[in-house]
Design a protein around this nucleic acid. Structure first.
Lengths: 345, 345
DNA sequence: ATGAAAGCGCTAACAT
DNA sequence: ATGTTAGCGCTTTCAT
């Protein structure tokens, strides 16, 4: 005598209880009653009983059969970064409402990990991908494209590949910030960025370069190497600022660089904005609440999420002919939010 | 002539190419070659060819057959909260290394959403659950337990239910912080918390109450109602502080309450710590970098993650007799990190 | 030591 | 209008 655990209700149980075939049940459940000319009476009985016993179809079996999992794989750089966390949350909510689930993972910008995660998502048979691409994963992404899995990149894109993408106009954001600083009377503006050559980083740098070149003003670009260990990053920024005392204002190309930068500035005891004006990319609790509050180039997170999910769901629901390139590239405008850290006193 | 997309390699293809049965291939792939007395020669040929063609078994089929998905469902309060984000990242990494995948979702502390998510994870046949329980989800959790799905709660637990859990000693954390403030000479210490009756919140409050009672000092407890809209929360804290000018120090029971609190304090232009000393739960970039830096009761995130995943994987790999209660409750110590915001000047 | 075959639960083409 | 049945790709028992 074995202690049997209560068994789940199966489609079979429904069918035999109702004395109809399992096909009828399946058809009704999948909203194909009408087109299969199943009588309303039967359809109703099925629906009622299904509700009554709380029958839930086995997704594994369903997916195995249909080849669709209704799961989207989301590969971001770092889910603990508020920018990505916010976009992910917005995407998740919208996808959920439209019947899709999101599974997400962070690459920490390590190509090896990105490859691993994409592979894992493929093994899990995701229906589509949303990817914040690290450098050097062109091959994996093009493999996905070849298999015709709908995919949207965001935050940056891979110029070599014809993909859908949603990005923010980084050149415009930085240019706006740079002009704002010049208008405040700062003439010696520095730009602190990473050593990455990803599209969004290059664009942000370009906005800075172009404005200063046009004005014939000196440029000071510092490229920082990001490591898991935060201390060297802070020390690097600190050294840069200490060795270039002529700098009056600095723009940080990402939220985490600015966080490190604020630490460096605090150690150097430079008053913001009296000794050094500060502008950062991305809004953040810290920047709003810092004393003084930090001026930021904010990215339109709601709009990013909406565009990403709209494009992806459209492709998922209207498969396109791979022969024609129906790829979409969306570029959204950033917004400069001016706070005390960049106002000349 | 249809344009056939390149077909995935199946276990069948492997078997027929190698002219062995698919059972042999399956057995070898699952490390059961030895116990099925398959010749080393054959096993080696299989492994070599599998490697060569990059065969990846279909997880859906595998799961349908075995009933195991090797996926763990992680239900947290808010994945954008750095505390949960950090614990989630640590759990994910450890689980990954041991062959398990994590899918996670935020409840925003809404019981309805928690129920929905747990249901969704069950539909996806997760092998186990890690849950930060909202109030009022005792029924769903006890359903999970009845189905004998291994489960671990963390951050708080459900006293009515015999579950595994990993929590931090909130009473001790708050008591340490309160004693520290008293030692600094502050006698009028307030405690700002939420209106939640979750175990961790009650414990944190208790630590405060007990210390002040023991000293015969006055207590000032403010319970704030959290809403999606941040403005009323800030206003509420601001009003509380403004109406009780005798308060010399305040302890916030969560990181987000303190963030709202800092905003309120800034609006009231109260100097920290000259006019008001501040201590918060959880460490955070903002607290480290704020001027002055904020004293915090830090939770041992690595240890929380390690305990959670160890307990869960143990249960997953060594199913226990449901008749005996082998449930584990782990209580970890917090650490008081003293910074300038609580040092009397 | 290896192979044949029965399912896991569901969908959908085909029969009736 | 409804029922029968062949798989989806894999694991595992049982037979050889």
């Amino acid at each position: 005598m074995s202690t049997k655990v209560k068994k789940r209700t199966l489609i079979n149980d429904i069918a035999s209880h109702l004395e109809v075939s399992i096909a009828t049940v399946s058809l009704v459940l999948n909203g194909k009653a009408k087109q299969s000319r199943i009588s309303d009476a039967v359809a109703e009985r099925v629906l009622k009983y299904v509700e009554e016993v709380g029958y839930k179809p086995n997704h594994l079996a369903k997916s195995l059969r249909t080849g669709k999992t209704h799961v989207i794989g989301l590969v971001v750089e770092d889910i603990a970064n508020p920018f990505f966390a916010t976009v992910a949350a917005l995407i998740e909510r919208q996808a959920f409402e439209r019947g899709y689930r999101i599974i997400y993972c962070s690459t920490n910008n390590e190509p090896a990990r990105a490859r691993e995660l994409i592979g894992m998502f493929q093994e899990r048979h995701v229906d589509g991908f949303i990817i914040v691409p690290s450098e050097g994963i062109e091959k994996e992404v093009s493999d996905i494209l070849r298999e015709q899995t709908p995919t949207v990149l965001f935050d940056r894109y891979l110029p070599a590949l014809p993909t859908n993408y949603v990005v923010v106009d980084g050149a415009q954001g930085t240019a706006d910030a740079t002009r704002h600083l010049l208008a405040q009377g700062y003439t010696n503006v520095a730009f602190v960025t990473t050593d990455s050559t990803q599209t969004q980083m290059e664009a942000r740098l370009q906005g800075y370069t172009q404005v200063l070149e046009a004005q014939g003003l000196p440029q000071q670009v510092k490229r920082v190497t990001i490591s898991k260990d935060t201390e060297p990053v802070i020390a690097d920024i600190q050294l840069f600022l200490a060795s270039n005392p002529e700098i009056e204002a600095v723009i940080f190309s990402t939220n985490y660089l600015c966080i490190y930068g604020l630490e460096a500035i605090a150690r150097l005891q430079l008053a913001i904005p009296a000794k050094l004006a500060v502008v950062s990319y991305d809004d953040h609790d810290l920047f709003r609440l810092y004393t003084p509050a930090i001026t930021v180039i904010a990215q339109p997170v709601e709009s990013i999420a909406k565009n990403v999910i709209d494009i992806l769901l459209h492709e998922l629901q209207h498969p396109t002919d791979p022969a024609v390139d129906s790829t979409q590239g969306v570029v959204l405008p950033p917004a400069l939010i001016i706070r005390k850290s960049s106002i000349r006193q």
